[in-house]
Nucleic acid binder design. Structure first.
Lengths: 184, 184, 184, 184
DNA sequence: AATGAATGAGGCTTCATTCAT
DNA sequence: GATGAATGAAGCCTCATTCAT
């Protein structure tokens, strides 16, 4: 249900009432329960659905054979592209704290993408291209920087032109690179 | 009310019931209303209170005369120190999306610290020490990286040893530095 | 909701709890809110509904062509009939002070009937049949006398036999008549 | 407590909170309980106090030796005078339905004045000066007319000039008089 | 005597969920 | 499959009352 996304983005899980979602969707309140067992089931389905979309995009576009620098760039731009095309979905999955109602499966879907990214980093570390720091830390720093930028964009505190995006990507590469500042 | 912090951290604003807070605080539900007009007033007071603590720490310790590199390091460590000493407060103010219930004053307090950080960055940019990118973007990237790391720490996905912290700080400096990789 | 009438009559608007109404109606408390937005909406709907019933009765039965004396008698007996047939409704709309929660529309409905009655009096004054006193004053005196009698009846301090009613009607006619005491 | 009068007049007994009364009185909430055992005790004390004032006025001024017509006039004007001098007190005791919280003593005080008035009427009836109708009915009609007029005055729907008051008094006399329309 | 913080029951209202249609 | 009225527990908040100061 796409209406649920709107509601959850705006007021969070607990702040959203099922009748509100139903109204925005143009259906009766009871109808939702034909498709989802409960409010939690709905939010988890929504979360998994969008997390999977992101993962699909990143996995599909990931250039296995390209250089690490290029791989980083592609992943980064893919996530930006998603965040720009589906701002509400991005805000929902990344700008809210879901800890208290996500089920095991949703958590697993989330870990999937992060594990993949960490794997890429770890591989690159063996080649000396990435800083010799715990890969999870680097991944979180890098992803956190990205999320921070997108949050500012969501709150209209910055404007993301292609140039800004490119510069920000370089800056994030510097975050993880073993040889930052080196021309791509 | 310190009990409110616990509750809000765990389940967010809408997910927390006033009686829950009262019980955790060991007082009657009605008592809270002697000190706060409403649940919203409470969450705003809490938010402002802790945001102010962070701002105080950063402002007090900020080395006006030191090098930009040193200034960055101090600010970063000051925030880390706060996040480690008051993990719940940090999780509350940075790991949740407060957009729908913060009042104007709370928003202003938040902007205060960010404006300060941006000012520091802008000044350093005139000296050519920081990347020539929109200062807000750099600030959000850097702060976002920090928050991302702390979120991973909060979720026990990474462990923050002094060494990891130092390395992470360097990585974040590389994010904004015009000459990353240069020894401090 | 007819149960609301019972409750409001007995303890007034503020003295009545929604759950009490729900219980008396044999429904759940929440059910009331499918039909009325709030307690105030409920009391206003109830007030308007009954005021309209009274107005309808008086308007329908009003003998446009009859003598003023006959018109007065008809209006008076129509109101008595209503008060006797629907004692709770009458007690609710006339024996309570609604000032603090009636909305504009409810006030308008009320004014409707009083304007009509005043108009009748004013017309009769031009014929010299009614005392040359401000029509509103006469109307309020007359209606007040009626309400006073009904209040005493409600409180079981008097018994209203047909004979008493007829005598009271005559007395009230004397109140407004320019030639009281004249045989009808 | 004079502040209580203001509150009760405006929103009734159940609609008024003790802290509101305390605030308006400029004292602490607890202070009220030094003088009154409960909210009900307070409202009953207030009711009795003012009812007694009215009774005192009427009894004191009642011209035992004068004509019935004069007695009626005096009682009527005495009540008008009270209602004009203490409009809030009058509105409180006569414009609200107190049935659900008045105690036995308060009811007795009320009955006192009405019994007196009825006695006067009954005596006059033996002289053939008053209509041969149940005395209580006549008394309620007359008093109801008075209250109706004062309610309209309270709601600013009429203006009570001395002339209007005199005319209204005559009209009310006609209500009860066995020979209405006869010059005083 | 006066205070006002504290209480906790209870009031109004919302909401996730059910179920007869 | 879809509806939406109904439910009743639970949420936010108020309030009469108490009591330590």
């Amino acid at each position: 249900m796409d209406a649920a996304l709107d509601c959850f983005v705006e007021r969070g899980f607990y702040g959203t009432a099922m009748p509100q979602i139903a109204e925005k969707a143009g259906v009766a309140a009871g109808t939702i329960y034909h498709y989802f067992d409960s409010k939690e089931a709905l939010v988890n389905a929504l979360y998994r659905s969008w997390k999977t979309v992101v993962a699909q995009r990143v996995f599909m576009k990931f250039p296995q054979e390209a250089s690490v620098r290029e791989q980083f760039r592609v992943m980064w731009h893919e996530m930006i592209a998603f965040a720009m095309e589906e701002p509400r979905a991005f805000a929902f999955i990344e700008l809210h704290n879901h800890a208290s109602y996500l089920d095991a499966e949703s958590v697993a879907v989330d870990r999937n993408l992060k594990d993949f990214a960490r794997g890429v980093i770890q591989l690159a570390q063996t080649q000396g291209l990435i800083k010799p720091v715990d890969a999870t830390v680097l991944m979180e720093l890098s992803f956190g920087a990205f999320v921070g930028m997108m949050r500012a964009h969501w709150e209209r505190r910055i404007e993301l032109t292609p140039e800004v995006i490119a510069k920000a990507e370089e800056a994030c590469w510097d975050t993880v690179s073993a040889h930052p500042g080196t021309p791509a």
